[in-house]
Each structure stands twice: as structure tokens, then as C-alpha cells.
Design a protein around this nucleic acid. Structure first.
Length: 464
RNA sequence: GGCGCGAUAGCAAAGCGGUUAUGCACUGGAUUGCAAAUCCACGUAGGCCGGUUCGACUCCGGCUCGCGCCUCCA
């Protein structure tokens, strides 16, 4: 089966046909690095990591770029408040972002261009847009003139008349039309700025993505991803910039636009401005990154996903079952083939149908639990391999069941040696038929968050 | 006002015009010294009203409710 992707441009699930199968290009809008990312910010990173892995399995070369917006008014403001440079501030949060995303087992992009490293490309694109009559200077700003782009609105399905009729658009005096947007704006001495043909200033938000795509990936790319809230105006404006700077603007800027739905809290969009969010960082202090990743994959990526403690606990319970089926299984499973692995691949190829892919994982876990020996091993490896397509089940079962938050000190609770010693003592008690003492030890450990399970292979312990 | 999305069993969440989604929870059984884990069994759910059809959760229309974008936002 070919890969099918829902394309916001066509509003259909379309067969994916790359421009050049020997070099597939994808771009994901990355974070503005002025504080820690929340779980809603992590959704596109995880979802499109699944897409990246899928493309890599199906094409020899995939070039995946994800930008870092490291100059922006919110960054400027935060840096000024901290009395530090935007470079120092943004670098700190870039590091935090990388660390958080690594915990979610996302692969690093092939390219991670920073806005401040690509100012030249932006200035060049803006100049081209001016030369072609798509942009104008006004009161120190350079603005894109939306009325010069006949295709404006094709992604978000809006037209200029509606835009202008929209009561929420404030018409600034320096704009020719209400929908015109900033490409370049002047910086005062206390703000970060770069020299340009229009004086010292800084780029508008939308230009960085268009310019960096052009510079690093090409004139037209295969796939561009981001959250649904970026469809308008950000991606619409990217298209305007990216097409109008070339030829007559008739070529596609991006062939497949993919947008993920929101993470919600009690049904309402999670947003920094609303304040109803959990940072990835704080969640990682309570749950392994894999629980967050699993939770993000339980719903289809275009649907809203309501986030709560219950969401995490259910993801944890599902992973406990899957890892339970992997006890004793090797990590390496690349040599295995199985129909259910193919089934997982087919589901992912069908517009990233992760909930269905996960159901196959559960089926494999059941298969492994019902069998023994070589047959069991085969199912375990199949489960491991199928899960790897989703970036899941990368740990040994014991590592999983004994996970503790990074913030917990070795002095907190019991160490492995103490636990093992108590298990030895309990084993002797059981041999002596001293079940009172045996159960006492088990209860004591339970209070410390350690669960004992007796099996014919001996007693094993897990942390809850 | 314009554009768009959703409503599935106790919870979460899918596909599908007519055969079990799946996981968790619950109940019974097997197993266990007792547990845990595991296995087996167990749920006709699809907002409301019409229509199309031999047959609709699944297509069409209307309604109700919820949400989103149009301003920074993943």
C-alpha cells in the first residue's frame, strides 16, 4: 500500500508521491525558544517523528528540517527581563527542548536551522518580493501585499473579502490592506537587530520558515507539518512568500500540508496564553517519557486529545501490559518478519493511524503471553520490531518496571540490593512455610512502592 | 459575521453500509500457600429528528450541544 496522508490543501487523504523519491523533504514548525515546551507543543514533534520514521523506512533519503525560532518579541521581552542576550536565553531553552524531546524518544531532525543564522536568506527573499511587486515599505516596515497574490487563502480556505470583513482584523495605518503582514520591522537600539536595506531591524515571524525552506530544502518541498493553529495566518503567509518570490508564483511551495489537532484540558485548547498547560519537563518528573509518547499516540493525530492524570495512567497501564509480554526478550529484533509487523506498517501508512497500530501491539503481546519458548520469542521480537515503528518499547522489561523519576535520590526508598535481600529472606520464609513472615515482607515492600510477583522462574519485583 | 472540526459503551479510543476494534475498569473461572502477572469467559455503544437502502454507528438533510481558527499560539 502506498502512503496516504491527509492534506489540508486538498482536504482529502491523498496518496503520497514525492517530488523526487531519492530525496524526500519534510519540514516541521519548531518551537519559539523562550521557555519550556508544554505537552501540546510536543504533540507535533512526536506525531511527525512517527512520519519521519515511516518515510525513512520507505525512501532511501529523507531530509527532515525543524526550525528554531530564536528571535521574536516574546524572546526579546524575556531576555530583557532577565538582563541577558537573546542568544543566551534561547540557547538555554534549545538545550532544554532537545533534552525533553530526547526523553520522548524522538529522532533528531537532519537540519535544525535557527532564525538568527538565516537572516541573510530572509533579507534576500524580502528584497525579491519587493522587486516583484509583492511587498512594499511603509513607515520603516516592509509588508507583504496580500492582494498581489491571486492564490492567497488557498490553504485556509479564506478569501480577502472575508478577511477584511472580519471584525477582528485591526487595520494599522501603515498597511495598504488589512490582510498585509510584516516581513521586516525596525528595531530600536535596545532591541536585537540586523542591518538591512531598510535599516536596522528584525524579521517578521512568517518569513523565517519560507526563507529557510528555500535555502535548505528547495523551492518546493514534499511535506510541511505543524499544529492546526498555524494554518492561518502562519502557513498561509508562508505559501504567499514562498510562491511569490519565484517565477510567477504558480508553483507549489509545499505539496502536502499536515496539521495535528490540539491537546486540550477539560475540552479547551491547551495554550501558554491561557495558562492551562503542563510542561513536558514537569510531566517527566512523574512519568517515563515513553508514557507521554504513548499517550500522544493513543488518539489519531488530527483529533483533539484531552490531557489529564487519567490519560497518563491509562497509557502507563497499557505499556505495563506490553512490557509484561517482553520479559526476557532481547532488545534487538531487526531480523524478524511477521504479518502483524506488516499490519502495523499498513496502519501507519494510512495517515498515521496510530490507535489501530497500537491495537496490533496488544494483539502481539497476547500472542507472546500465550506461547512458550521459540514461538514466544518470535512474538516478542515481532512486538519489539512493530513497536519500534512507533518509537516504543525500547527498554528492557526490568528497566521499564523499575523506572524511577530522575529527581528521586538514591536515598529515597529502597535500593535494589535491599530489595533483593528482602526477597531472599522471604524466599527462605516460604521454604519454611512461614507465610506470615513472607506476607509481611511483601506488604512492607508494597508500602515502599515495590511489588513482588512469584513465578516458576523465581520472584521478580517492580516499582509502581 | 466568515471558515472548519467533533458528538461511540463506566473511562480512553478506532475502523466499517450487513461478521469481535483495542486497552483500562468491572464480574466469573483457571493458576497461586495467599497474592501479583498471565490465560479463558463476559458488554448489540454510537447526541436528537427525518431521509436513502433489503439493511446505517457508518451515506444525505435538519436540529441540539461542544470545540477551534479569523490576534501570539503546536
Amino acid at each position: 500500500m502506498t502512503i496516504k496522508l491527509y492534506n489540508t490543501l486538498t482536504q482529502h487523504k491523498d496518496d503520497f508521491t514525492p517530488i523526487d523519491p531519492s530525496q524526500v523533504t519534510m519540514y516541521v514548525c519548531g518551537p519559539t525558544v523562550y521557555n519550556y515546551v508544554h505537552i501540546g507543543n510536543a504533540r507535533p514533534v512526536v506525531i511527525f517523528d512517527v512520519l519521519y520514521r515511516l518515510l525513512k523506512r520507505n525512501y532511501p533519503n529523507v531530509k527532515y528540517a525543524r526550525n528554531l525560532t530564536d528571535v521574536d518579541d516574546k524572546i526579546n521581552k524575556a531576555a530583557a527581563e532577565n538582563n541577558e542576550s537573546i542568544k543566551v536565553l534561547s540557547s538555554r531553552f534549545v538545550d532544554a527542548f532537545h533534552a525533553d524531546m530526547a526523553q520522548l524518544n524522538t529522532l533528531a531532525p537532519d537540519l535544525e536551522p535557527r532564525a538568527t543564522d538565516n537572516i541573510d536568506a530572509m533579507i534576500e527573499m524580502i528584497q525579491t518580493l519587493i522587486n516583484k511587486g509583492h511587498a512594499y515599505e511603509s513607515a520603516g516596515n516592509v509588508l507583504f501585499q496580500v492582494s498581489t497574490d491571486a492564490n492567497y487563502g488557498k490553504l485556509s480556505k479564506r478569501n480577502l473579502d472575508e478577511m477584511i470583513a472580519g471584525k477582528r482584523v485591526e487595520v494599522e495605518s501603515y498597511k495598504k490592506d488589512a490582510g498585509d503582514f510584516i516581513l521586516w520591522k525596525p528595531s530600536t537600539d535596545d532591541l536585537p537587530g540586523w542591518d538591512s536595506p531598510w535599516g536596522r531591524g528584525r524579521p517578521g515571524w512568517h518569513i523565517e520558515c519560507s526563507a529557510m525552506i528555500n535555502k535548505h530544502l528547495g523551492k518546493t518541498i514534499d511535506i510541511h507539518c505543524g499544529g492546526q493553529d498555524l494554518i492561518f495566518p502562519h502557513h498561509e503567509n508562508e505559501i504567499a512568500q514562498g510562491t511569490c518570490c519565484h517565477d510567477n508564483g504558480s508553483e507549489n511551495f509545499v505539496n502536502y500540508w499536515m496539521h495535528n489537532g490540539y491537546i486540550t484540558m477539560n475540552g479547551e485548547k491547551m495554550a501558554k496564553s491561557v495558562g492551562n498547560f503542563f510542561t513536558v519537563r514537569e510531566l517527566l518528573d512523574k512519568f517515563p517519557g515513553e508514557v507521554l509518547r504513548f499517550a500522544l499516540l493513543t488518539a489519531h493525530y488530527r483529533s483533539p486529545l484531552d490531557w489529564s492524570e487519567e490519560t497518563l495512567l491509562q497509557a502507563k497501564a497499557s505499556l505495563d501490559r506490553l512490557y509484561g509480554a517482553l520479559r526476557g526478550a532481547p532488545i534487538d529484533a531487526n531480523d524478524i518478519e511477521h504479518a502483524k509487523i506488516d499490519a502495523v506498517e499498513q496502519f501507519i501508512k494510512d495517515d498515521l493511524a496510530t490507535p489501530q497500530a497500537l491495537s496490533v501491539l496488544h494483539a502481539l503481546a497476547g500472542d507472546a503471553n500465550k506461547t512458550e519458548g521459540e514461538e514466544k520469542l518470535l512474538f516478542q521480537k515481532a512486538l519489539r520490531r512493530a513497536a519500534s515503528y512507533l518509537g516504543l518499547l525500547t527498554l528492557n522489561a526490568d528497566e521499564w518496571f523499575r523506572w524511577q523519576p530522575a529527581s528521586s535520590n538514591a536515598s529515597d526508598g529502597l535500593g535494589a540490593e535491599q530489595i533483593e535481600a528482602l526477597i531472599e529472606e522471604r524466599l527462605q520464609a516460604r521454604k519454611d512455610k512461614d507465610f506470615a513472615r513472607s506476607d509481611e515482607i511483601r506488604d512492607e515492600l508494597k508500602e515502599q512502592g515495590v511489588t513482588l510477583e512469584d513465578s516458576k522462574d523465581g520472584t521478580r519485583w517492580t516499582r509502581s
